[in-house]
Simulated assay, not measured.
Amino acid sequence: MITVTAATGHLGRLVVADLLERGVPAGEITAAVRTPSKAADLGVRVVEADYDRPETLAPAFAGTDQLLFISGDTLEQHQNVVDAARAANVGLIVYTSGPKAETSSITLMSGKHARTEQAIVASGVPYVFLRNGWYLENYTGQIDQFLGTGVVLGAAGDGRVSAAARVDFAAAAAAVLLAPEPGSTYELGGDQAFTMSEMAAEISRQSGKPVVYRDLPEAEYAQTLAGFGIPAPFAEVLANADHGLSVGDLFVDSGDLHRLIGRPTTTLADAVAAALKTA
């Protein structure tokens, strides 16, 4: 039995679909979700599993051979999942972590992801860590705003990000769930890294509208985001991530993602083209 947590989220849905496409019987896939009514269209077994309600987790994980643990919001939630997986005698935890979690200057990585990895190791449950890089959708999802203002704001300098599409990371997760190598850690990123200036130029090239990248100091970028209505603590997290990008913390050249999915990863050009079709 393969159990996918957060299966109604963007990544979780893609993983379930990929597993089904690979021929895994629907009866051998469990979607563990906070709101079961939202998972009726997945076509697999559905159980309630709320990271904030520990009593729902161990029953949801019962009988699970491979658990895809898609990261949540807080360390407390993550500890709840790890404790429940151990109590339910889960055979393997596959956790969606972040790039260079042990050494990254990005608070999200060195804090939540690194500490969750440590908790999983300490639990004694066999594991695989998928250190997922940034999604291309993090950028293409803002393409209407970029086109409207003509500006991409950030604090990334000339740093290069090895972004890939969610569908790429989902395919990697499915591949690992079906042929896991316990104890493995994969640094996952796109084949072609790019700077924010290069991304702005690609959007401009394809759209025919001028779009430029404007680099800001980290603190000023955080203040700017807060001015747009983003809560200040989250704005600081985003700005800190951009600083990490500027010093190479989101650059991945392992080739792990390409090897796991058996094909080249989605390019920036293709992702921009797809986003412009719906812009």
Rank of each mutant, 00 (worst) to 15 (best):
V4H: 08
R13S: 08
L14I: 00
E21G: 02
E21M: 07
R22G: 07
R22L: 06
A26V: 04
I29D: 02
V33Y: 08
S37P: 01
A39G: 06
L42V: 12
L42Q: 09
L42E: 05
G43M: 07
G43K: 11
V44A: 09
V47S: 06
V47L: 04
E48M: 05
D50F: 02
Y51F: 15
Y51I: 11
D52K: 10
L57N: 01
F61A: 07
G63R: 14
T64I: 14
T64Q: 08
D65N: 11
Q66T: 13
Q66H: 12
L68Y: 05
F69P: 00
I70H: 08
S71L: 11
S71V: 13
Q77W: 01
Q77H: 11
N80H: 15
V81P: 00
V82Y: 04
D83P: 03
R86H: 10
G91C: 06
S97C: 06
P99R: 09
A101G: 04
I106L: 05
M109G: 00
S110F: 10
G111F: 10
G111H: 06
G111Q: 08
A114I: 04
T116W: 07
T116A: 10
Q118I: 07
A119F: 03
I120T: 07
S123T: 07
G124F: 05
P126K: 11
F129Y: 10
L130N: 07
L130W: 03
R131N: 14
G133A: 00
Y135H: 14
Y135C: 13
N138K: 03
N138T: 04
N138Y: 12
G141Q: 06
Q142T: 09
I143P: 05
I143S: 04
D144T: 14
L147S: 08
L147W: 03
L147K: 04
G150W: 01
G150P: 01
L153Q: 13
A156V: 00
G159Y: 06
V161L: 05
S162K: 03
R166C: 02
A174F: 08
A175H: 04
V176Y: 06
P180V: 14
G183Y: 06
L188P: 01
L188E: 07
G190A: 05
D191M: 02
Q192D: 15
T195P: 04
S197I: 02
E198G: 13
S204A: 15
Q206N: 03
P210N: 12
P217V: 09
A219G: 11
E220A: 15
Y221N: 14
T224Q: 14
L225F: 01
A226Y: 08
G229I: 07
I230R: 14
P231T: 03
A232Q: 13
P233G: 02
V237I: 15
A239H: 10
N240Y: 05
A241L: 14
G244Y: 01
G244C: 12
V247N: 07
V247Y: 02
D253T: 10
D253L: 02
G255N: 12
R259L: 13
L260N: 02
G262I: 09
G262C: 04
G262H: 07
A271C: 13
A274V: 09
A279L: 05
